[in-house]
Every structure is written in structure tokens, then in C-alpha cells.
Computed example of a mutant assay.
Amino acid sequence: MKKIIVILFLTITTVGYGQNTVHFADSIRKAYNVPELSYAVVDSKSTLEIAALGRHSIDLPDTATLNDRFHIGSNTKAMTAFIIANYLEKGRLKWTTKFFDLFPEWKEKSKPEYATITLQDLLSHKARIQPFQGEDGPKIPEFKGTNQEKRKQFGQFVLTLEPVELSDKIPFIYSNAGYTLATLMVEKITGKSWEQLVEKIFNSDLKLNVKLSWPENQKQKDTWGHSFENGKLTPVPSNVDYHLDYTEPAGDINIKLKDYIKFIQLNLAGLKGQDNYLKAETYKFIHKGIKNYSLGWYNIYENGKELSTHSGTAGTYYTLVHIDRMNYKAYIIFTNSFNIDTQQAVRLLMRKLKENYGS
């Protein structure tokens, strides 16, 4: 009887949180002019709360649904690290594999400072690779061929550039280009492109219905990203000519929130010590094997808590994920706009979710 009462209390409490949070989230969304906002709180086995609020675009009446797709920007990095980890477990790579062990013919034209960089260095942003974030950085030549061929040409170009400096105060340099180099390594040992590996692992094996680039919004109703121009949000159609300067493995996946939850739950279960698609020991290394920034996740210890966190944007969507590694809960927020107001709205909602669910 006591057990039934406890379960009933937890159910009522969760429903109460959900009702309160939806009202709070929608008021925040409206106050900060976020067109669409979806969020979820999950543990390794269940979804504790989930909601989709707002509209696909500021110019459309379409109502948000849980079947909407969002571009997740740099939260793609954790998925690329996941792909690579799969082949590490198969014995095809090691975290300590050196880049030039696989591409010895590139070494002569590359800067000598990169001679010993490893797969682990690239994924944890410790290889001293130029960042290539946004419009900053060196001018990139025009490359030709398939996406994979362009990544190779870009990788060769990146390795001719001066390395950035690291120090005790700057222990890593966040680099989208570093993820291109890491991807070249897994492409080399598998004989498959990153796009093919995404299709195999996330779609064929895990059934996550992952797609690349912007969500399609011209042939069907779905989210429109919104850029911030001249002080206002501007909807961006999916047929806009756009590329990430050959750093797609660092930030160019779109996915439904419900499917992304499945990916996060694999990570939560692994952190709890349960083998699934990857081994539990692999998840633990991915999340906390390296200080500051591990493999696709910021590795944070503060106020007696352990967190894996990451945000993502390519300028038109903004996503934020926090994994509480002590309580084995995750908090996920997806939006289809990006500016200071969107970031503030997401911060406020994240704080509220954590207050409600004990993190």
C-alpha cells in the first residue's frame, strides 16, 4: 500500500511540474520572442516531461508539434564522437591513434607542431587546430568534388596553418575544423563517408531518423530557423544556399526531439554502467575521460555536481543539453531562432527545469 501511495505522489508531483513548466516556458518564449521552443526532461528509461510550444515561423500560423525537426548545430559533435567510438570498440582505431599514422603522405606539407596530434586531441580540442567558427578565421579556398573529397582538401589546408597556443589558462581551443580531421580518420579506416556512417549508425541501427542540414520546410510543414538581422528575426527557408565550410561533422544534423531523447538515454544508461550500443566504459570516457572538454561534451564539475553540457547553433536554431551525471537526468531545449534573447530564454527555462527535477 505504501509503495502505491509513493508512486501516486510521484505521478501527481510530475504532472504538477509539467503544468507549471509549460505555462512558464510559454510565457518565457513569448517574452523573449522565440518562435518555437520544445523541451524535455528525461532519465535513462523514461521521459519525465516534454512539450512543444509556439509556431514553425514568425510568418506562419503552423502550430508546434513534437514531430518537428530542429537543426542541433554543435550538438552534432557528440554524435560524431559516438560514431567514432563505435569503430574504436571494433578495434579499428584507438583514442591515441596519431593522425599522421593514417595520413603519412600529408605530413611533409603540414606544420611540424601537428606531428603527434591524436584522435583524442582532435575530439577534445587539444590539437591546437584553428577554430573556424562563424566568419572568423583564415580565408578558405574553394574546394571541388564530393563532400568527403572537400573535407580532405580542407583538412590538408587546415594543417598548413599556424597552430593556436594553449596554456594553463587556455587548456583547449574549441575547433570545428578539428572535428573534420577526426572524421577523416574514421572515414579512412572504414572506407565510408561521414554521411554514410550517420545513415548506418543513427538511422539503420538505432532508428533515430537523423537528417542533414536544415529541416526541410519548403515541401512540407516544419520548422524554419530564424537569423537575427537589423534588430529582428528573419525566417530562413531550407533551400537557402548554405554550408558549414566543410565542418559538417561538427554541426550539421537535424532531428526530432523525441528521437534525440533516445540518443541521450543511451548516454544516460551508459553513464549508469549499462552497456548498450556502446560499452559503459566508453560512455564514461566520452563524457569525463578528459578535463574541461571531453569528447563532444563539456566536462563540468562545480558546486558538488557533475555535468556534461553542450549548446549548438549555426545562427538560425539554438539547442542546449545538460546531463546531470550524478542524478542521471538530462534536460534538453530546442529552439528555432538565435540571438541574445533566445539564449536568455533558454537559460531561464533550463534553470526552472532543474529546480523542478532536483538538479
Rank of each mutant, 00 (worst) to 15 (best):
S46V: 13
S46C: 03
S46F: 04
I50P: 01
I50V: 11
A52Q: 02
A52N: 04
A52H: 02
G54M: 13
G54C: 14
R55H: 15
R55S: 15
I58G: 06
I58T: 09
I58D: 06
L60S: 14
L60Y: 09
P61C: 04
T63R: 14
A64Y: 06
A64M: 08
L66M: 07
L66W: 02
L66R: 01
D68L: 08
D68Q: 07
D68K: 07
F70W: 08
H71Y: 07
H71L: 13
G73L: 10
G73K: 06
G73M: 12
G73D: 09
G73A: 12
N75E: 13
K77C: 09
A78M: 13
M79S: 08
A81V: 12
I83G: 14
I84E: 01
I84H: 02
A85F: 08
A85P: 02
N86D: 14
L88H: 00
E89Q: 05
K90W: 00
K90I: 00
K90M: 05
R92I: 09
R92H: 14
L93M: 11
L93H: 04
K94Y: 12
T96W: 00
T97L: 03
T97P: 04
F100G: 04
L102H: 01
F103L: 03
F103E: 00
P104K: 10
P104M: 11
W106G: 13
W106V: 11
K107H: 01
K109V: 15
S110Y: 00
S110W: 00
K111T: 15
E113K: 04
Y114G: 11
T116C: 10
L119C: 06
Q120D: 12
Q120S: 15
D121S: 03
L122S: 04
L123T: 01
H125Y: 08
K126A: 10
R128P: 12
R128M: 15
I129A: 08
I129T: 06
P131V: 06
P131Y: 01
P131M: 02
Q133H: 11
Q133E: 15
G137Q: 01
G137L: 06
K139A: 14
P141H: 00
E142G: 13
F143E: 05
F143S: 08
K144G: 07
K144N: 09
K144R: 06
G145K: 03
G145R: 05
T146L: 07
N147Y: 08
R151D: 06
K152H: 10
F154S: 01
G155C: 05
F157L: 00
V158C: 07
V158H: 04
L161K: 12
E162H: 13
P163S: 07
V164N: 10
E165I: 15
S167I: 10
D168V: 15
D168E: 15
P171L: 12
P171Y: 11
P171M: 11
Y174K: 09
Y174C: 08
S175L: 01
S175I: 03
A177W: 06
A177Y: 07
A177S: 14
G178N: 05
